[in-house]
Simulated scan of single mutants.
Amino acid sequence: MLDAAWLESAAAVTELAAGAPLLVGGRSAGARVACRTSAAVGAVGVVCLAFPLHPPAHPERSRLEELLTPSVPVLVLQGDRDTFGSAGLVEQEAADRPGIQVVPVPGADHGMRVLKASPLPQREVAALVVSTVAAFADRILAAGR
């Protein structure tokens, strides 16, 4: 259902973009959709914010194959306290895939929220996410020129 809705919307986005490269992404389930549909929409890159590698407390139900689906560069920003799979686990699982860049978000959970005692305050987490996504987009778009 989510894939179908995105594919329908992506057609309109692509038409409005008038041939500009399409970078797709999402958070959690949206990241899964972006990975699964990246080829169908002709994406040049995928951004995953808090990719849900597995349901909490069920690492045996891996969604790694979805993360490995895109044939274009993938950026994953993942909290090191994420109960859907920590940044370390995502890095480990995707280690043999050079097109996937995992950026740990210190102290962040699945919603990119941090505790008061976290190494980065919430404002710095937001800045890290924004600057990392911007740098990834710049690199991907520059490579396509």
Rank of each mutant, 00 (worst) to 15 (best):
F51D: 00
G85V: 02
V130I: 14
E93S: 13
P21K: 04
G42P: 04
A127K: 14
V114E: 06
D82T: 06
A39P: 06
V125S: 03
E66A: 13
V125H: 01
V129Y: 00
G107Q: 00
L89G: 09
C48F: 06
A108N: 04
M1V: 11
G30W: 00
S118W: 10
L7V: 08
V133R: 06
A134N: 13
P98G: 06
P98A: 07
P121S: 06
E60F: 01
R36L: 12
Q78L: 00
T83E: 12
V129W: 01
P70K: 03
A34I: 04
H110W: 03
C35P: 02
E93G: 08
A29E: 13
A127R: 15
G111I: 10
M1Y: 12
V90S: 01
E65M: 11
I100L: 05
F136W: 08
R32L: 09
P55F: 02
G79R: 02
P73W: 03
Q101C: 15
G111Q: 14
G111K: 12
A10G: 05
G88Y: 08
A12E: 11
G79K: 04
D96F: 11
A50P: 02
P21W: 06
A31W: 03
L77A: 04
V103Y: 03
C35Q: 05
A108H: 00
V46D: 01
H110T: 01
L7P: 05
A43P: 07
A142D: 14
A143N: 08
D80L: 07
A142W: 08
C48M: 05
D96I: 09
L2Q: 15
R63N: 09
H54I: 02
I100F: 01
V103D: 06
L75E: 04
D138A: 15
G79E: 04
L7H: 08
L141G: 04
G111T: 15
L115A: 15
S62H: 04
V46K: 02
H58E: 14
A50Q: 09
L16K: 14
S9G: 15
I100G: 02
S28M: 09
L115I: 11
S71F: 10
A117F: 10
V41S: 06
E124V: 09
S28E: 08
M1R: 12
R81Y: 10
R32H: 09
A143I: 06
L7A: 07
R113I: 07
P59Y: 07
A135S: 13
P52E: 00
P98R: 03
G144S: 13
V24K: 05
T14W: 06
G88A: 01
A135L: 10
R113Y: 04
V103Q: 02
A50M: 08
G85T: 01
P121M: 07
T37F: 10
V133M: 10
L16M: 12
L75W: 00
A18R: 13
A117T: 14
A126G: 15
R113P: 07
V41I: 07
K116Q: 14
R27Q: 14
R63P: 00
P21N: 07
M1N: 13
A50E: 05
L75T: 03
G45H: 00
L49Y: 08
P119S: 12
P52L: 08
A50R: 05
V129A: 03
P70M: 09
D138L: 13
G85Y: 05
G26T: 05
A134G: 11
L23Y: 05
